[in-house]
Design a binder for these strands. Structure first.
Length: 745
DNA sequence: GACCTGCTGCGGATTG
């Protein structure tokens, strides 16, 4: 056995832990507590304030929270003390249970995992004596409130700490709002404030995280950031060129062609050559690409007569297939590489991998960072990232996206930002009123009825939905009543309506987020197929479907049907469906990469040549000074702004009567309007007031994103959408900058 | 949103 930690190390917090916990630490062979673990002991034992523990590795963080929290429980006596641990993933609860079981056994503290896969008998045992450690998901907590009603107070009354794992995974989403609301409802049930502990990988903005963990009380949150040594990176961006089709006169067809396949095949060849024999993760961005690359790589293994080393992993695969891949990665006896979506980005323990391959730009810098964190975990090993950029050979028909090498430049910009330690902050301004609808129904179900002022006080004033006025809340209740989700009896008590009863009784009520649903595309009464639609749709807008451009004739939000007719004008843009939203900072960095002259050190020879080409185009188009380029009927606005800013600009332009505007990423493309008309509109936008916003967005449709958005009154739906998806200030300054580059404004 | 995440209680059959 290892010797106990030395006196000097143990002199502070460690000795305050329960002796049985101290013994467990010695038996684990730890030489001492890590910095964050040591610093977390006192504030958690005191149980007076909230704590955030930010540390890079999962291992140290959960123990940092649990060692002192369990000390409190163990000393609370047989009949009391409950720690509630909330996790975004079932897999994490199972991991945590494995880690805590032995320690809690020694402390005679029961640990209860509680999620959809846990047997009812185990849950019954906890309900009989609600003490110990409860490991639970937000959805299961929601179910407890709805199903146990008034009995829920008895369960939570002894709670000493609320621990939220993977805090960053909650902030800024409908589900995150639900979690925040549940934390508050637990405190209401217990009739007192309960110390909250948030765990996370290093968060960018600690203030924001603290504000999320304790709204209106961020100042009193004790933030513990572990000092981790910086990791060594090895990064390469590799360029691949798709040869133009032999007939140069033809505009580029969407979908596969020989050149495209040849480029993909070169990427497969390089992946095969470099990844065989070791464990790696490959991120090709979409589920269909996961299938394509796994298949191609497996066929190479077969051709070489070697056992399969490449395994697929994404959300549409069955649990068995996903587990096969996870086991292959963990196994260790044979090399295994997973081709995956962000299902393998966080949570599940898959051991160390040698390198990460990213095909095309990743969805965000934050995501890239998380992915890279999976590599180089063994001491002395660097984290390796290979980024593959596939670009098209330029022809006379090439668009601005190709000419400026948008995909590759975006990859380069994102890596530059990653190396500087920047990543996208979560959007904490979102109101998430969809979740408020869910919480109204849930609280009414929990209490068997509620008065409107009590709901407003519990959910809005004191709860997670501050920022809504009393009048707006009343409008929301009226909308719910009109839809028969709620009703009111003669005393004014709000009850569930018939439809409300129906929804709340169904088991899919507990999740705050909706599953994917698709819009039907209809032409001349014929259904052509369905499409998940990402950005707001207005009549007169063009959409891409099946590689062709269509004009939207009408929009039916209720039935989710878009009627279109063929629109021969214009060229089809590159992408058939939406792309992940690019942050403003990334587009600004792309401009810096294009406008710069310094060589980028991590490019291979082809990528270097592509960058030289892109920089030449940038200069040739005078984009260092110009932001508006007019060619025939097309006006391109080079806003160098994020997608939220560009989307807002598009909606405002249309609200001001500009015929046609589309966010195409690197530009906002306007057609069918005179330049002067566009300049006037930009001037209007640059001088807009917040109060004009509502009127300008009156023709925008398809703003329902959240599960319950359909039940919101129109004005609140727009308010909620704007708060999460649009950037009014960004659009205003983008309009102003475009004007200034033109010598106006 | 490209990609994710989550889910009760009860009746009936079977087993100890």
């Amino acid at each position: 056995m290892n010797s106990p930690p030395s006196k000097s190390e143990a002199s502070s917090g460690f000795e305050l832990l329960d002796p049985r916990i101290q013994r467990w630490v010695w038996e684990k062979g730890w030489t001492g507590l890590r910095d964050a673990q040591e610093r977390a002991i006192r504030p958690i034992l005191a149980a007076e304030c909230d704590v955030i523990i930010a540390a890079a590795t999962a291992a140290g963080k959960t123990e940092a929270a649990f060692l002192p929290a369990l000390t409190v429980i163990a000393n609370a006596g047989e009949e009391s003390g409950l720690v509630i641990y909330i996790s975004p993933l079932k897999a994490l609860i199972n991991d945590q249970f494995g880690r805590l079981d032995q320690l809690c056994d020694a402390l005679e503290v029961p640990v209860i995992p509680w999620h959809g896969d846990v047997s009812a008998s185990r849950k019954q045992k906890f309900l009989k004596t609600p003490r110990g450690v409860l490991l639970i998901t937000p959805e299961s907590l929601e179910a407890l409130f709805v199903r146990r009603g008034s009995g829920v107070a008895r369960l939570f009354v002894e709670t000493t700490h609320l621990i939220v794992d993977e805090l960053h995974a909650f902030i800024g989403s409908d589900r995150g709002k639900q979690m925040q609301s549940l934390l508050h409802r637990i405190e209401v049930a217990a009739e007192r404030r309960i110390p909250r502990i948030g765990l996370s990988a290093t968060l960018g903005d600690m203030r924001l995280a603290a504000e999320y963990l304790r709204p209106n009380g961020a100042d009193s949150v004790d933030v513990i950031v572990s000092d981790s040594k910086s990791q060594e990176f090895q990064i390469q961006v590799r360029g691949y060129v798709v040869a133009a089709p032999p007939n140069n006169a033809q505009p580029k067809a969407a979908g596969d062609n020989e050149g495209e396949l040849a480029a993909q095949s070169s990427v497969v060849g390089h992946l095969y050559k470099t990844l065989c024999g070791t464990n790696n993760l490959v991120f090709p961005n979409t589920r269909s690409n996961v299938e394509f690359y796994t298949d191609a790589l497996r066929r190479r293994c077969e051709a070489d007569g070697r056992p399969a080393e490449f395994w697929p992993h994404h959300g549409s695969l069955s649990r068995e297939l996903r587990e096969d891949t996870e086991n292959a990665l963990k196994d260790g006896s044979r090399p295994a590489t997973a081709i995956c979506t962000n299902t393998l980005e966080l949570g599940i323990d898959i051991g160390a991998v040698k390198s990460i391959a990213q095909i095309g730009p990743g969805p965000s810098v934050a995501s890239l960072r998380q992915r890279l964190g999976r590599s180089g975990r063994r001491p002395g090993e660097p984290a390796i990232l290979r980024s593959y950029a596939i670009e098209h050979e330029l022809t006379q028909h090439s668009d601005y996206s190709d000419r400026l090498r948008e995909g590759m430049v975006q990859s380069v910009a994102m890596i530059q930002l990653l190396l500087r330690g920047w990543f996208e902050p979560p959007n904490s301004a979102g109101l998430h009123l969809s979740t408020l609808v869910q919480q109204v129904l849930s609280v009414i179900a929990e209490r068997g009825g509620a008065m409107a002022p009590a709901l407003f006080h519990g959910l809005v004033t004191e709860g997670a939905f501050a920022g809504l006025s009393q009048a707006e809340f009343a409008a929301l209740l009226r909308s719910l009543a009109k839809l028969d989700l709620i009703s009111q009896d003669s005393t004014g008590l709000l009850l569930l309506g018939q439809k409300g009863e129906h929804f709340v009784a169904s088991y899919d009520f507990y999740a705050a987020f909706a599953s994917d649903d698709e819009w039907q595309i209809v032409c001349d009464g014929r259904v052509m197929g369905s499409l998940p639609i990402s950005s707001p749709i207005t009549v007169g807008m063009r959409i891409i479907f099946g590689g062709r451009r269509w004009l939207v004739v009408s929009v039916d939000d209720e039935a989710q049907v878009v009627s279109v007719r063929s629109d021969p004008g214009g060229r089809p843009p590159r992408f058939d469906s939406g792309r992940p939203s690019v942050h403003d900072m990334v587009r600004k960095e792309m401009r810096a990469v294009l406008g710069g002259t310094a060589p980028v050190t991590f490019l291979d020879s082809i990528a270097s040549r592509l960058l030289v080409e892109a920089r030449e185009q940038y200069q040739m188009l005078h984009l260092d000074q110009r932001q508006i380029i007019q060619t025939g009927a097309l006006t391109n606005l080079f806003t160098w702004s994020g997608d939220a800013e560009n989307d807002t600009l598009v909606l405002l332009l249309k609200g001001l009567g500009v015929a046609q505007a589309d966010n195409e990423g690197v530009t906002v493309c306007v057609t069918g309007s005179e330049l002067n008309r566009i300049l006037d509109a930009l001037l209007d936008i640059s001088q807009l007031d917040n109060s004009d916003l509502e009127d300008l967005l009156k023709d925008a449709h398809n703003m329902t994103r959240g599960k319950w958005d359909w039940a919101l009154p129109e004005t609140l739906l727009k308010k909620s959408f704007v708060s999460s998806h649009l950037s009014f200030i960004g659009a205003r300054s983008a309009a102003g900058e475009c004007l200034r580059s033109f010598g106006h404004g």
